[in-house]
Nucleic acid binder design. Structure first.
Lengths: 132, 132
DNA sequence: GTTCGTGCAAACGGTTTGCAACAAT
DNA sequence: ATTGTTGCAAACCGTTTGCACGAAC
């Protein structure tokens, strides 16, 4: 709670009850919520928050590099508290998104691609999480 | 033209003028059109096609594995005639999507990921195409 | 009192759906 | 006559925008 406020301050964001609630939700470990999922969650504590506030706040967080938005699913953006480079696994059954640590995979050959100025890259894996 | 009809038949799709036009458009080399781009293009030859027909037809092609839809950009699907495995480069300036041949890159370590049943994976690179 | 954050509602753009007309078998 | 295909319009969903109210420096 105190840390969240400090974190917001550190990113030049004025702390408000709504923003704190949104930050708490989206910074939860291993969460990749959609904007609407954040809205639903935040509404439990702040029943009056508007969708617009949630969207605006998430964009603000992205601009300030607190979180990153990822386009991995059909037509919807999900938010990722992990702003460093990492890969993603997408469960095609459940839609669940799982971070894969950067060191788990190695990509070879990207430096030798001609004609591209690479800013970032990631491996996107689709399949199913093994049950059990 | 004849080949397109044969191709449709081969995928169990009845050939109609609209479908042939849509197929011609989306199967063009190196094209990654959006559904609306296909609609615009097809309208030139068939001014009466409806958006719905284009969307339905593209979905049909996807189901029948003639093309693949990719979710790489904000909120819009693009269609890819390259149904085999390959990687993608996305120009962050223009939004252009470029296929990277599968053999250009090698990913190491994906077999040793625990708990995942991998169906497919690809490297998604973001950056800028070098000018000149 | 000016700036910043909020809530509401309406608009937006891409996509989907329901339905009636139509063509093909 | 049945089946499949089309066009239209309306609905839909995630997202964005405009604006007025209110709180905070």
């Amino acid at each position: 709670m105190k840390e969240i406020i400090a974190l917001l301050r550190r990113h030049g964001i004025q702390a408000t009850p709504q923003r704190i609630a949104i930050a708490e939700c989206v910074l939860k470990a291993d969460a990749h919520p959609t904007a609407d999922a954040v809205w639903e969650a935040v509404k439990r504590a702040h029943p009056t928050v508007s969708r617009a506030t949630v969207y605006n706040t998430l964009h603000l967080f992205c601009e300030r590099n607190m979180i990153k938005s990822q386009i991995l699913k059909e037509g919807i953006a999900v938010f990722d508290r992990n702003t460093g480079p990492h890969h993603h696994f997408i469960d095609e059954g459940t839609g669940e998104i799982i971070d894969i640590p950067w060191e788990s995979l190695e990509v070879i050959g990207e430096e030798s691609l001609q004609g591209f100025e690479i800013r970032e890259y990631q491996v996107v894996i689709r399949g199913r999480k093994k049950t059990g």
